[in-house]
Every structure is written in C-alpha cells, then in structure tokens.
C-alpha cells in the first residue's frame, strides 16, 4: 500500500533524528500519529477516517498518517492496533465488524486474532442505518409483501451481502430472524459486488448503507423497503423503519468509531477524547461528511462504550444464530 511513502517517511525521520530526540520530552503528541484503517481505501472506514485525520492534524499540530491495512475482513489491521504499543501514537478507525470477528473466531474454535478488551473506545463518529433494497421491478412494494412471499417459499428468496458474517449479512439475519422467515444467502466480497448482483437480477434483495444506493433509487433501478435505524433517514423520508412496522428489535447501524490500544495512559486518552469533540465541530469535517451523506453520530467514550457493548451483544447473538457455515450453503 503506502509502502514507498512510508519508506520516504522513515528516511525523513532518520534524517531529523537528532533534533527529534531533543524535543521528545514535551506533552503528547510530540511526533506523528498513525491511524490504522483496517480496510482498503475508498470504503466507509477510509472515507470517515481521512477527514477525521485531517481535522485531528489541525488540532494536535502533528501529522496524523492514515495507514490502510486491509485483510481478513479487517482482522489484520485491527489486531495490529490491538497489539500496538499503548502510547497514543497508534489509533484505529474501525467499523461495527470489530465486534463480529472475535465472535466468529470463537465459533470456529480458533485462536482469536485480537480480543475486544485489547481496544479502548475513544469516540463514536458516524452511525448509518442500513436500508433493505429490492429491485424496482420486483413484486414487493412493502416489507409486508416481502415477508408474506418469503413465508410461502422459505429459503427461495436470495440476498447478497458484503461477505459471510459481514455487517450486511448480520443486518439481514436480524430482520429474517425477527420476521420468522428463511432467506438464501449469497455472499460477495464487498458491498459493491453485492449491489451489482442485485442490479443484474442474480439475487432479489440486499441491505446497504443509504448513500451508495441513492443514485440507483433516483434512477428507478432499485426500491427501498425499510430502514434498520431508530428513525427515518433524511434522504429517504417516505421509507419506514422496521421498528415502525412492528419489528421491535430490528435495529442495525454501520458505525465507525475511533479506538486506542487498551492501557493507553489516561491523560493521552483525555487528549484524544477532547480532540474528537473538536473534530466533529470542525467545519471542514462537517462538510466532508455532508457530501458523503453520512450522518455524524458523535458520542464520547463512556456513551460509546455503552453503545458498543449493546451492539456487540446483539451481533454476537446474530452470529450464534447463523452458526458455523459448512460448505456452500
């Protein structure tokens, strides 16, 4: 990825080595901070992480370097951050899937790549509810139509997802469980290919973040049926939430949050938390998030912790329900 850039940075760092040791005694931060994004550039985590890093730079007066470390559904980058030195110079921008990976590891009885208690929450940055999408030419106009049809032919209506145990898979699984229906899962290797499969009529439904599907809705290709959020999405005012429709516990967000390795000293954690409070008020950051149509849902560490625990428990249950998947089915 940013290999050559890093080599250049290392060389530059070595060149300025004597001067750096002199000023190292100051208050945090005295040198560049690395923000690990455990997904490839262009994804949700990257799109949120970069504006956050830019705003942090302005506030902390130190470079915040985004380092994309994708792999194994995010596990590679997350375990890197979990095992990094807790000195505040390595931070992590992660998504909801941070809670899923250890649960899936448990399911397969394999050595976990990281434990959730190795990471301390700093702040929740965004939370985007997913939207249930079907093709515009499909017979289903409402969730009721969809559920009734699915009851009649269990396991025949198929949906695509961004990958097994991925966020989009889990969202559908929660809905299917609550509605008491059985759907057929066809996992793809990302949200993009999953949407392509729906557009090509190779599957019949999929759950997605709103911003990606808005142009397809405007063009009359796809139809939204319901939203997983607590309240309706501003860009889709006519689309009901699952809660309104009587599916009480169907609530799911693709959220992004900032983490630091557990054991990071309290004063540094405080600096990071204060910084994040200023980041979400930064005009450049706000306009970047507006353009991406991603709602900011800032929560400070204690509230974020509470939100995370609840979300993680919900996801753990969903993973358990899906169970171990053997073979193609």
């Amino acid at each position: 990825m940013s290999g050559f850039l890093r080599i250049i940075l290392v060389v530059a760092a070595l060149a300025t080595f004597p001067s750096r040791t002199l000023q190292a005694q100051g208050t945090y931060p005295t040198r560049p901070i690395t923000m690990i994004v455990p997904f490839p550039p262009g994804g949700v985590a990257d799109q949120t992480g970069r504006p956050v890093a830019a705003a942090m730079e302005k506030i902390l007066k130190q470079p915040v370097v985004v380092s994309n470390r994708p792999g194994a559904g995010g596990a590679v980058g997350m375990s890197l951050a979990a095992n990094a030195k807790p000195d505040g110079y390595t931070i992590l921008m992660a998504l909801s899937s941070i809670s899923i990976i250890p649960e899936a590891d448990k399911l397969f009885g394999r050595q976990p790549t990281y434990r959730m208690d190795q990471l301390a929450p700093v702040a929740l940055v965004t939370a985007d509810p997913t939207v249930l999408m079907v093709r515009a030419d499909s017979p289903w106009k409402t969730v009721k139509d969809f559920v009734e049809d699915a009851r009649k032919r269990p396991g025949e209506i198929s949906f695509s997802s961004s990958g097994i145990y991925g966020t989009l898979h889990m969202a559908m699984e929660m809905f299917a469980h609550s509605a008491g229906i059985k759907l057929k899962h066809v996992p793809f290797s990302g949200a993009g290919p999953a949407m392509t499969a729906l557009l090509g009529n190779h599957v019949q439904a999929f759950a997605s973040g709103p911003s990606v599907v808005l142009p397809q809705i405007q063009a009359g290709k796809l139809r939204p049926l319901a939203v997983w959020g607590d309240k309706r999405v501003a860009a889709l005012p006519d689309v009901p939430t699952f809660k309104e429709l009587g599916f009480k516990d169907v609530e799911f967000y693709i959220w992004s949050g900032l983490f630091a390795p557990a054991g990071t000293p309290e004063p540094i954690m405080k600096t990071l938390r204060d910084t994040m409070r200023m980041v979400v008020a930064d005009p450049d950051f706000k306009s970047a998030m507006e353009k991406l149509q991603t709602p900011v849902d800032y929560r400070d560490a204690p509230e974020f912790k509470e939100f995370w625990d609840k979300d993680a428990a919900e996801l753990a249950r969903a993973v358990q329900r899906v169970g171990r998947i053997e073979g193609a089915q």
Binding site: G42, Q47, S211, L214, P215, Q218, A219, E290, K291, L292
Partner: peptide, 13 residues
Amino acid sequence: AALMVHGIAPGPL
C-alpha cells in the same frame, strides 16, 4: 469513492 467525497454519487444518471 473519490467522486463521492465531492458529493457526486455515480449512478445510472
């Protein structure tokens, strides 16, 4: 993604 950062979501239109 680069286009979406500018508020342009590529789609059929």
